[in-house]
Design a binder for these strands. Structure first.
Lengths: 334, 334
DNA sequence: TTGTACGCGTTATCAC
DNA sequence: GTGATAACGCGTACAA
């Protein structure tokens, strides 16, 4: 309630000890006698003292803040991830600093500069277009956790979901349901993710000895509108397909509308499956089958990895395997 | 590219001037001779000097960071708002510090404490459950921008969307289409927003001389699942209705699924309208009519207001009026 | 206009 | 164990 500024020095004076002792108690840097500790704790409580992170940052070289480079803070996927990060970081006294790169290498570089200027203790970097080299370079200066890339470097943890496998599972699901003509809406080819998911689609087809047909692939951009357009393109080609796999849920939702526009019903006429299992996919009409890849959990894992790194340990993170979530947008053929 | 730490002092030395002169140039605090300024600019560029915000914060008492208390960083509405804030703040050198209160007064109070401890220069506070009194108290210590409340206090700007009017417009739209039995899914009564939207619904009915029927109102919680349940409840009562107004788009999407579950088609059997006009509403099946209330724009306005406040000016903000967006989820009766 | 000196609140490095 | 003392990098009275 009190708006007054209370400093460590004031605590020290009231407790009858030196500032250093107070600092030691706060950080557990060294042992102090129980009686002094008690006096200090008492003074802290009485004054309502809260350490100033700014001063701490200057003196100690740590700011207790973690930079998080996301690509689009307003996307449902990243929103969940950021929430996961927040859940893990805040209770440990760290504050996440979110900046968004907008899938633009230059903007991403700028984000990194802002974060470095702010002296964050570490950086969590989600996907993006910037080169691995730049990221590795930053990693030499501070702990980094990176997702969606396959980089190896000391002081850098790479969290990689198995997108190839996830896409294989999704495609396999459609195959198991008897579908043979399966169209695919790819993500932005600028993402490694997108390429992997395409590969998984191809792998599943190969397993089933079905030749890959480029005509059944439409390129999207990971957002709803692109899914809608992709369906138009696919249908315009006149190619027949009984099932459609979209490389993420947002495009699947767009595709759903596109199919409706062409009087094709899901799942009666076309089976549809997405990827990511967004919260909202549970409420589409019909509820969308998808590959569960929890962004929320990914965020938590990334934060945990960062915490380990900061504690000087090499985290041993195992990313959860993608899991099929079957709902009502797919049906057995015939 | 250089990872070295460059300080203001080094710039001063290289430019052959005193540190204060460099500081003055950086902050425009006082006039300096063109020649020295040139030398300093040159040195800054050569060294790639970036001022340390941490040190700046300690010395100058400003951290160039703005606390933003959101309720759920992973909700589509807040995601857009945060993006709007980021767009305005970052180019001006400020960094937003996002924390989420989860619609929990205690958590919100904790958020505010964290932000104060971090010495943010100001706080943008979205909705929430904490009391106006606490907010006013904080406003005495630093600039505040608050949304979704009607508070008056010096150093505090209150951005208020006219939810009563928006809800009236939505209901009026249904009335104009010939509907007379219009059900309503309210938001969490803990929000002022929710109460206002209910009031707008009532107002429109009154204008049309239609008695308000409590049986046609179901209580939701602003998320998709609650919209789904609300429809079940409404239908279980056996009340007939030809149109349904959900107090936000997320609930409308849930309601859409609920109606489908009961073999009611939108808009053939029931006309449906939401509120907020989320990006995703453009892609529901059918695309959802809604009341446009740009969260993105709201974020920008809040950020602009904060910047004005920080510049010592009293911002004169005019919140955009809610606007009806008619799509395919409503149809004329008969 | 410009430079000097000090302070911001904390941590780290010494002696004791 | 504990307490002075010196940084940390910058802003700003104050003097010149």
């Amino acid at each position: 309630m009190s708006n007054a500024v209370v400093t460590l020095e004031m605590v020290a004076k009231l407790a009858g000890v030196s500032p250093s002792t107070v600092s030691r108690i706060l950080n557990g840097t060294a042992k102090v006698s129980p009686e002094r500790k008690k006096a200090v704790d008492h003074a802290i409580a009485k004054l309502g003292f809260v350490p100033n992170p700014v001063a701490r940052g200057l003196a100690g070289g740590r700011t207790l803040s973690i930079g998080v480079v996301t690509q689009a803070i307003d996307s449902p996927f990243y929103g969940s991830a950021l929430r996961g990060i927040e859940e893990r970081l805040v209770p440990r006294g760290y504050s996440p600093l979110f900046v968004s790169g907008q899938w633009n290498a230059e903007a991403e570089a700028h984000c990194l500069e802002v974060l470095r200027a702010r002296r964050v203790d570490g950086i969590i970097f989600f996907s993006g277009r910037i080169s691995d080299k730049v990221l590795k370079n930053y990693a030499r200066g501070m702990p980094m956790v990176v997702t969606g890339r396959k980089i190896k470097a000391s002081g850098l943890v790479s969290l990689n979901c198995d997108n190839v496998e996830g896409a294989r599972v999704a495609t396999r699901h459609l195959l198991d349901l008897g579908h043979r003509q399966i169209a695919f809406i790819s993500g932005d080819p600028g993402h490694a993710d997108a390429l992997d998911r395409l590969q998984g689609y191809k792998n599943a087809l190969a397993e089933a000895a079905i030749p890959f047909d480029p005509e059944l692939v439409a390129e999207g951009g990971y957002h709803e509108a692109s899914g809608l357009h992709a369906v138009h393109d696919l249908l315009a080609k006149g190619k027949r397909f009984t099932a459609l796999f979209a490389a993420n849920d947002q495009m699947a939702i767009g595709a759903l509308l596109g199919l409706n526009r062409h009087s094709l019903r899901v799942p009666e006429d076309v089976s549809l499956i997405g990827y990511d299992d967004l919260q909202s996919s549970l409420f589409s009409c019909p509820p969308l089958s998808s590959v569960h890849q929890s962004a929320h959990e990914l965020g938590q894992l990334a934060a945990d990895a960062m915490l380990s790194l900061l504690a000087g340990q090499q985290p041993d993170i195992r990313v959860p395997v993608p899991r099929l979530v079957s709902r009502e947008s797919c049906r057995r053929l015939r």
